[in-house]
Design a binder for these strands. Structure first.
Lengths: 197, 197
DNA sequence: ACTGAACTGCGAGCCGCTGTCAGTTGACGG
DNA sequence: CCGTCAACTGACAGCGGCTCGCAGTTCAGT
């Protein structure tokens, strides 16, 4: 799996390029006012290729080549630790990776649309939903709980939504604090229970 | 506000009729394979009217004439009680209302698409997001918390997502138990904190 | 090399959704 | 009861996201 063939490398490069070009156009004219056709023209690929690569216009923004790696890492950790520790661990790992530093600017550009553009936000939520299902299955497998039980459903949903809120807060506060700090704060809130008043 | 004019009554009747016709067609041919044009023809209104009434195809399923009433009731309760008690209260009230009994079948039909059809599910999440924002504002007002603080964000998100999971669970278990029981179970989980292992 | 499979671009087309405009219908004061 | 005005409705045109089938091209394994 490690050594990517030429085909895959070309595809990855094309996707990076398309995403980059698209973000430029979105920044200039706004997400809604940029057509896929124009992105395709600017990136010198055909519109159908964009749809083949990304599936939807929103995914042009949301796609992240490291997502599968992250998910794999999370899965691995879940075999040995509880979900909250696993998430904390991933975050720490992430911050220590040069990859993150390097692409942080791109991440923030994408985050802008993920938070401000309703359509993109919707797609993000959908991704989160899919992730919740998978997470539930994994936790169930490692703890012997009922994967379809109400309790586990609520717990994983709370976890995922806490992470999403952390992202939103990170964005709204202008990326002032590190994402790691914020996510840990969010997890703390969840962990200690929700005395509301 | 109470006595609805003829205009509003006609509109409400039309919307009920359109939703009903649409659900019939969706049941027969599937959500994706039914065009708004066909719904319009079957309901004997113009397509533009459907868009004026509901905004999007998904909202034809999600629209509920009692939603604004529910939201108002929730707002009222939030002035005097904490959010969890308020939600429990609304649920109890709901179950006691004849309105619910009467329309329960329609609710289940709609629920089917809200859960199984990705596009509709997306719209539901979006509604939930909007509700979270409002809820945050209301809680902040009544408790003096920072409406944009991380803690309140996480708490309200957990509450809303718990409710959504309760709905999903209700649907998945074939509406066996009452929604009230399930929501209360979900709220219990949230309330006592999320020790995961 | 060479064959098969995967990928790409092209063209046509569906349908959700928006905006405009002319015609109609209910709300309201006299 | 009626005239006026605002609100609503339907017909139409059009945009653009997205899909599909097809023909030509490019990479992978032998």
């Amino acid at each position: 799996m490690r050594p990517l063939g030429l085909r895959e490398r070309k595809k990855l490069k094309a996707m990076r390029h398309i995403q980059d070009v698209a973000l430029d156009l979105f920044d200039r004219d706004g997400f809604a006012h940029v057509t896929i056709e124009r992105v395709a023209a600017e990136a010198e690929v055909s519109p159908s290729s964009i749809y083949r690569y990304f599936g939807t216009k929103e995914m042009v923004v949301l796609w992240d080549e490291y997502d599968p790696i992250m998910l794999q890492a999370l899965d691995d950790r879940l075999a040995a630790q509880d979900p909250i520790s696993a998430l904390r661990g991933i975050l720490t790992e992430l911050v220590d990776t040069a990859m993150f530093e390097q692409d942080e600017r791109v991440i923030m550009r994408r985050m802008h649309y993920a938070m401000e553009e309703p359509a993109v936000r919707g797609a993000l939520n959908r991704q989160a939903d899919a992730m919740a299902v998978e997470l539930r299955g994994t936790i169930a497998k490692h703890t012997g709980r009922d994967p379809d039980g109400l309790e586990l459903r609520v717990v994983t949903a709370a976890l995922i939504s806490a992470f999403l809120e952390a992202l939103a807060y990170w964005h709204e506060t202008g990326y002032r604090d590190s994402l790691k700090t914020i996510v840990e704060g969010a997890l703390d809130v969840i962990e200690r229970g929700l005395r509301v008043e």
